[in-house]
Design a protein around this nucleic acid. Structure first.
Lengths: 209, 209
DNA sequence: GCTGTATATGTCAGTGACTGTCAAGATGGT
DNA sequence: ACCATCTTGACAGTCACTGACATATACAGC
């Protein structure tokens, strides 16, 4: 019952998890998500089907589980941003966690292939939207706490924080869609900034043609 | 091969569909979605499991298929709104199709029970988000066509229409969530108006020149 | 009425994601 | 070396969903 932050067993577990996810990812890109059976993934890593499900609750988690890492970092960002900062700006900073892998030359190919599979597979996309919604709820919670700490709490039934966060996530997904559809020519940061500016332009709207 | 808008067979098919959906709905509310098997629904309407799947592609469609009706009406609204109207306002009018059942005393109990099941069942909620996203895409398409018809088309890569629509749908879902969580005390129209106002509060008409 | 064609339905077998269970094996601490 | 704990494979089972085939029912023309 050692409560180490990272025991040996924990580390090996993470390693095996990564190995399975990588093998699955490769197969998904190669043959497609639906066409790849759990047995194929199990065979690729030399395990039984049952053991794959001991590391991932569902097939979808093999792909969208990658966003769980970002989730923790995003919540930390909400808390660390200056309390006076406008919510919309803080949310944009939160999304930097999603932007980074897409615009970093090293991680970009992997990020694009993941997003392509997600956006190209209805079942996966539904799971992705759900995960974003969970994340959204957690961020709303963090925003409420931040407002409390700042001494200006929201009214109990004020829909503003939830609505703003939902709108921002809408922009995030819309930006991902546009960015992928446009052949990922510009940076994802640009696509996201444009989308978010279209909904809530800063004080002075930039020249609109 | 009669191409009537509503042949006898079409009508009986709709009737059977409604009968199945109603039976399923009752069982879902009574025992819960996951606990209700397709066989239970089939037995309730005196059919085989196979026949249920001839009327509904998936178990989820038994619930969220109800939104397909609204979808067609919503697209019509986009097209019928004055072309000068701000997109955000048109989207609010589009959502009237979702508001009506929630605020009409006659349909309200049914609407609330459906939304409760959807928001209370992760698998269903994921499917719901996906369906809203499909609807969203269709509405973006309609907005683009409307802009074309008005003589001021969007630039090919302008993320504004998609971002605005995504943000509006975010508000819709957030409002539904708040409305349900708050015990449906106020009207849903109020909840939605508040949410959408929080994102684009005083709709300042863009100074184009 | 009779017949041919299209549609609706039941039955059966099968796939694939996922779960519970149990026994055997590997591991880590003492 | 020993024991508690974790890990694994094997097996059987559930449930959503699909394809195939046979049968029944409906609707047409004659």
């Amino acid at each position: 019952m050692s409560s180490q932050t990272s025991s040996l067993r924990d580390r090996t577990r993470r390693a095996v998890q990564k190995e399975i996810a990588d093998a699955a990812h490769a197969l998904f890109v190669e043959r497609g998500y639906e066409e790849t059976k759990i047995d194929d993934i199990a065979a690729a890593v030399g395990m039984s089907q049952r053991s794959v499900f001991r590391y991932f609750e569902t097939k979808e988690e093999l792909v969208i589980g990658k966003f769980d890492f970002a989730a923790a970092a995003m919540l930390a960002i909400v808390r660390d941003r200056p309390m006076e900062e406008a919510v919309w700006v803080s949310l944009r900073r939160v999304f930097d966690e999603m932007v980074a892998p897409c615009d970093d030359p090293g991680q970009r190919p992997a990020a694009v292939s993941i997003l392509s599979v997600v956006f190209g597979t209805p079942a996966l996309f539904a799971a992705y939207l759900q995960k974003m919604h969970q994340l959204q709820e957690a961020i709303v919670e963090a925003l409420l706490e931040r407002a409390n700490a700042a001494g200006r709490p929201y009214a109990g039934d004020d829909p503003a924080p939830r609505a703003l966060t939902a709108a921002a996530f809408g922009c995030l997904v819309a930006a991902q869609h546009s960015w992928l559809a446009g052949g990922t020519t510009k940076t994802f940061a640009q696509a996201l900034d444009q989308a978010m500016a279209a909904v809530r332009s800063p004080q002075v709207p930039p020249r609109t043609g």
